[in-house]
Nucleic acid binder design. Structure first.
Lengths: 126, 126
DNA sequence: CAGGGTGGCTTGCAAGTTACAAGTTTGTTC
DNA sequence: GAACAAACTTGTAACTTGCAAGCCACCCTG
């Protein structure tokens, strides 16, 4: 996770978010989840150690940040940074692809698809 | 790889292509590579056992197919299926994201970006 | 103020996956 | 028939994942 395999942007992207869980946590955040227990409740059943590890790595990678929402006891919530939010089109395209080509997957969720990130970037822009 | 974690299309997509190498092999194919030795020569330096394993899994997943291009000795080449080709937009969005947000990555390659798959699908279509 | 419950982790460990190196097979070229 | 090459396969150590259990701080109830 700490060094890139090459300067290819695809390799770089995969080095930061190319595992089985990171993009699913991102998806949950786009759907409004913010707390540890929210992420645990998703239907893919991530385990606690992996969730804690991924949240820490994602924070170090600048995809999310962590802020206390209460003291006593201190509890944190996790939110997308602009860098994390900018991965939405990747999630959208992945959804469209799987919904069409992978058996047993449902249609993409409207909440993910009907959403744009700030400066929207069409595919064939410079 | 054989069963899906949920019916979410993102989870489905990740179950098929959410690892450190599959999308890089796909990228190489979009750039015209077809042979085992072509894939080995990429700058990320995939090792032979992983390459062989990934090619076999991708074939089973229907992303690519394998055909002999000569006998004596039999040699195969690998080509994208329509299902594999349809992952191009995912690669494109990943490239745009990383080029913009990941330090040390180069600009997306024109050969990948200036390319459309047959029925092009804008993001916010049903 | 003891006992149970809850949210958010941490720890331990077995099983699976990856990386690196070396070897094998099939045929071709000198 | 020796060297070479493409395309794998095998062995093994290191790392990552999945599963279960434990832990700590705090609230809540009696």
């Amino acid at each position: 996770m700490t060094s890139l395999r090459s300067d290819c942007p695809i390799a770089g992207g995969l080095d930061m978010a190319g595992d089985r869980w990171t993009l699913l946590i991102l998806r949950d955040m786009f759907l409004g989840k913010r707390r540890y227990s929210d992420f645990l409740s998703s239907s893919e059943k991530i385990t606690t150690n992996i969730l804690a590890d991924r949240l820490a790595k994602m924070e170090r990678a600048g995809l999310i940040n962590k802020k206390p929402y209460q003291d006593r006891p201190v509890r944190h919530e996790y939110r997308l940074t602009p860098k994390g939010r900018a991965l939405l089109p990747v999630l959208q395209q992945m959804s469209l692809w799987a919904a069409r080509y992978v058996d047993g997957t449902a249609a993409p969720e409207d909440a993910l698809m009907n959403r744009a990130i700030a400066p929207s970037r069409p595919v064939s822009v410079l």
